[in-house]
Nucleic acid binder design. Structure first.
Lengths: 115, 115
DNA sequence: GTTAGCAGTAACCTATGGGTTAGTAAACCT
DNA sequence: AGGTTTACTAACCCATAGGTTACTGCTAAC
């Protein structure tokens, strides 16, 4: 039976993909994760590294990432606050890889006017 | 050298991922592709199958998908217009799969309060 | 004592994605 | 001949993501 209406199949598959997309698809989420992969950072340090993000937005993004367990807010003894990329963020590796790969291939195809 | 600032690494990786995301991240793109996987469809047929999408939005989404080579607009001899999922859309398989997989795992983790 | 950095929050603005309703010209059905 | 379906487009509305500017209370440096 090849009757794959959206109501049947989409309802199983799409919400899961959308959850994933919601978490990484923001303008800054990936950049933050990549930047934090280079080492823990403080708020302002992060803001400078990302160049272009506002404090408000950075604050929101970090809260989202924290809620989803990808990043932690660590308070040192001297009171310094560090944002740390969690090991769990590595679980996004293959998703990211696929996205980047497909994006590159696709852009190439378009450049070559294969589309 | 572990100095992965965003300006260095993000500038290579992020745009590629964003291109990919832009193409599949809309509310309807995936649903349309999945629906068309069940066979070619006419405009109104597609609209009914997706239940909830407006003609305006469907029209826009189809244009996007066509521009990116994922879908074609085929005109039959009798004038009927069919929307056809291209073979190229299969190249999204692994991206989709990873997204769905990660989304499901993540939701599970949250349900189990592992986060 | 004041200036600069830290870690944000508050109030506001705008551009965009998507939705709603209506309307079109042509073909098709009865 | 009148109604329905097809394949759209036009004009409008709204919610949200993200941006801008300003402000806070706190600490450290000069």
């Amino acid at each position: 039976m090849e009757t794959a209406t959206c109501t049947e199949k989409c309802s199983q598959v799409v919400p899961a993909a959308e959850d994933a997309l919601y978490i990484i698809a923001g303008k800054w989420k990936m950049r933050i994760l990549i930047t934090l992969a280079g080492g823990d950072k403080r708020f302002n340090e992060l803001q400078r590294a990302l160049s272009g993000i506002s404090a408000r937005v950075l604050s929101n993004e970090l809260k989202d990432l924290e809620l989803n367990g990808l990043v932690s807010r660590k308070i040192l003894d001297n009171g310094t606050i560090l944002y740390v990329r969690n090991a769990y963020a590595d679980s996004l590796r293959s998703v990211m890889h696929e996205l980047v790969q497909w994006g590159m291939d696709h852009k190439q195809k378009i450049r070559n006017r294969e589309i």
